[in-house]
Structures are given as structure tokens and as C-alpha cells.
Write a protein that binds this DNA or RNA. Sequence first.
DNA 1: GTGATTGCAAATCTTTTGCACTAAA
DNA 2: TTTAGTGCAAAAGATTTGCAATCAC
Lengths: 137, 137
Amino acid sequence: MTLQRPYTSILDRLRTVGLRPTRQRLALAKLLFDNGHRHISAEQLHSEALGSNIRVSLATVYNALHQFTDAGLLREIVVEPGRSYFDTNIATHHHFYFETSGRLEDIPGDEVRWEKLPAAPVGYQIKRVDVIVRVDG
Amino acid sequence: MTLQRPYTSILDRLRTVGLRPTRQRLALAKLLFDNGHRHISAEQLHSEALGSNIRVSLATVYNALHQFTDAGLLREIVVEPGRSYFDTNIATHHHFYFETSGRLEDIPGDEVRWEKLPAAPVGYQIKRVDVIVRVDG
DNA sequence: GTGATTGCAAATCTTTTGCACTAAA
DNA sequence: TTTAGTGCAAAAGATTTGCAATCAC
């Protein structure tokens, strides 16, 4: 798990995780990390990039999102078949999912505490615990 | 939330939720509910049906799975983009997800207890809380 | 009968892949 | 240079849709 280092430049962050700071990655990272925490889909990020005159293909957006995720800069959240978001907040926290709007909202980590949680099956380690509170109304 | 009524026939269960007990729905429901609790994908159920000489199209399998889910007979669990399962266990419970194998395993409801959980946002109700414990090893 | 359900094939949507081209080190 | 990264178009999956044919009531 990579710690978030708010005062590290995007360029250094990419270098640190071993990704070449290409024009596309820098631009996408800027959109992702310079606008506060966000829940964004690949398609959304692609449109946003095009809207900001960053010429980048959807395939590259997918590549970058997955590389960032593997590097621990992002976290992927799947809420429905065919609907997944990338979360720029990599601290431990959870989510409300608004089924009608498809929107995701953070639940701060300290708003969820376990009284009991099972141990990992023998031979396995817990990588992450996802809590999705599904709401509608 | 529909209570599970183990001694109700499949035919009656379909009738109760207002679904006509067609040949296809009866056969699929039999595969789903007469074999203990299972986590099954649409594709898997379709293969299983064909393997049991039940002629049914994949589209109908999807339809039936969604109708059963809407009726409260099934619960859908999405673990990764492009990988979702239908769970015949509709009691409150949670899941281990084995990232390497793609397998899902039940965590009984009483193995997870909350010390703290946020209230629903104003104007919304909590429909369900999904806990997915992601493990690898 | 008549209205719900099905099958099929086509369409849609999301995501991945192959490969020639380009750019970073 | 050398190797990683990119774009594009095509492929691959998963899921949905439209509509005529079929089935439950």
C-alpha cells in the first residue's frame, strides 16, 4: 500500500512507482489528482481529457488507470455489472452507492468499525475489505 | 426482503412472486435452488442448463436471473468488471472473494458485526450492506 | 384468445489486444 | 539506440434489445 504524499509532484509520483511520465500519463494524472478526491469511470476521464484538449485514446486511458491502480495510486470500485469507478482516495474508507443515480460517495474510514470480522481463510491474506452501503430513496 | 421458505415448491415460489412458471423458469429455478446454495454466473447457469438438456437461450437465462433477483429469490454480487455472480443465499451474509481463482465463498451473517456504521444519508434508506473481503495468497 | 414469455440474432457497452508508430531514457 | 508507451482499429466479453413465434392462463 503506497502512502499518499500530497506534496509530491505528479511527475515524481509517476517516477516513484516506475511509470514513465509521458505526456498522456501526466495529463491524466493531473486530471485525476489535482481536483480533490474523485470517483471517475474510464469513459468519464476520457471525455474530460478530450474536453481539455488532451489527445489520448480510450485504450490509453484504460491502460493508465490500471497502471495507476496496480501502482497503488488509485483504487477500483465495482458497483454493478458494467459500472466501475476509479477512486483517487486510497486511504482506508468505504462507500455509499446511490442505486438510482449511480453515484458513489465516500464513507470516511472511521465511520465504519468492526466488532467482529472473520480471519482470512488458511493460506490466504486479506488484501482489502470493501464495504458498499447501497441506498435508494 | 422475501423470507426463504425451504418447503415451498419451486412452482409455488414462482407463482408467489408473480412469475409464470414456464418450462424454462422452472428448469432454471430447479438448477438454482435444488442444489444447495451457490454462486453462479449467467454463463455458467446457461451451460449447466444445456448440459442437462434444457433448451434455453442465454438471453432467457439473463432475463430469469434478473427477474428472480428483482423478486428477492436471488442476490447479485459484482466482484470485478465483467464478473458477477448470482447467489441463491438471500439471508444476510457476506463474502470472501479469492482474487486469483475468481471464487466467492460465504461468510455467515454472524461472522460480521458492526461496532459502528454510518446512518443512511438524509432522504435515503439503506437497501443492503455488502461486505467483500478480498483475499489472495 | 390475449397477454406474457421465449428464442434468436443483432446491437450495445465495457474492456482488452495486436501491432506499427512514437517518444522517453 | 533501446525499450516502454501510444493510437487505432479490431476483438472479446458481458449484457440488453427488438420482434416474430410460442406458451400459460
